[in-house]
């Protein structure tokens, strides 16, 4: 029995509404995996039954979700029909330690890339949209961040990235920005997207072969 175990069980109920619901329905059995004494179990069961636990779980989910959607808005828009299930699997595998959008987004992007490669995410254009947004995050990291512990400094890093597409992705990106579904078809014009983060604000150019 430790204070750490009590806090761990409390937070796990917040992060997992399913655990909280089990605590309500099954009582002490739901908390058997935690090293708790009788008073702590009783306290947690009392907490689980309070109406305020629902809003606590909602806020925890919203806070985690907003950092991921803030980092990868177009990808999340594209995946919206299945995003809830994708996020739940992700959080089961990798509970988030860092809620800042840039690092959290990069870790989530790697997870999504793995899911696409494994065939568990099959939405049309998912790989393309993710590639575009991931490149933006990587450029942001390379150009806006420098070591603080070493007293500042650092370089701008690689500030320009080119991405080749077999089609013109601009109608796709515009639709997702507008919160619309991906177009049924895209212009079959090979397009190079140039992400230029040398200036403020960054520039995005769509270049098509003449």
């Amino acid at each position: 029995m430790t204070l750490a175990a009590y806090q761990d069980a409390f937070a796990r109920m917040v992060l997992s509404p399913a655990l909280c619901l089990r605590a309500r329905s099954d009582g002490e059995a739901a908390l058997a995996g935690f090293d708790l004494d009788a008073a702590e179990r009783s306290r947690l069961l009392h907490i689980a039954r309070q109406p305020g636990m629902r809003i606590t779980c909602i806020l925890a989910r919203a806070n985690r979700l907003s950092s991921l959607v803030g980092a990868l808005p177009l990808t999340c828009e594209l995946l919206k029909p299945e995003l809830g299930a994708i996020i739940d699997r992700y959080w089961d595998e990798k509970p988030m330690a860092d809620l800042q959008s840039l690092p959290a987004g990069l870790v989530f992007a790697q997870h999504l890339a793995d899911e696409i490669a494994a065939g568990r995410i099959t939405a049309r254009f998912a790989a393309d949209v993710l590639r575009y947004e991931r490149a933006r995050l990587e450029l942001q990291l390379a150009t806006h961040v420098h070591a603080a512990d070493a007293g500042g400094g650092g370089s701008r890093g690689d500030a320009v990235r080119t991405l080749a597409f077999a089609f013109d992705p601009s109608p796709l990106f515009e639709a997702l920005v507008a919160g619309e579904e991906a177009p049924a078809a895209l212009p079959a014009t090979p397009t190079t997207v140039v992400l230029d983060f040398r200036g403020d604000p960054p520039e995005t150019r769509f270049l098509q072969a003449a």
């Binding site: 992060l15 330690a97 860092d98 809620l99």
Partner: peptide, 9 residues
């Protein structure tokens, strides 16, 4: 490993 509860408890 570290986990963030994403709310202050």
């Amino acid at each position: 490993t570290e986990v963030n509860a994403a709310v202050t408890l």
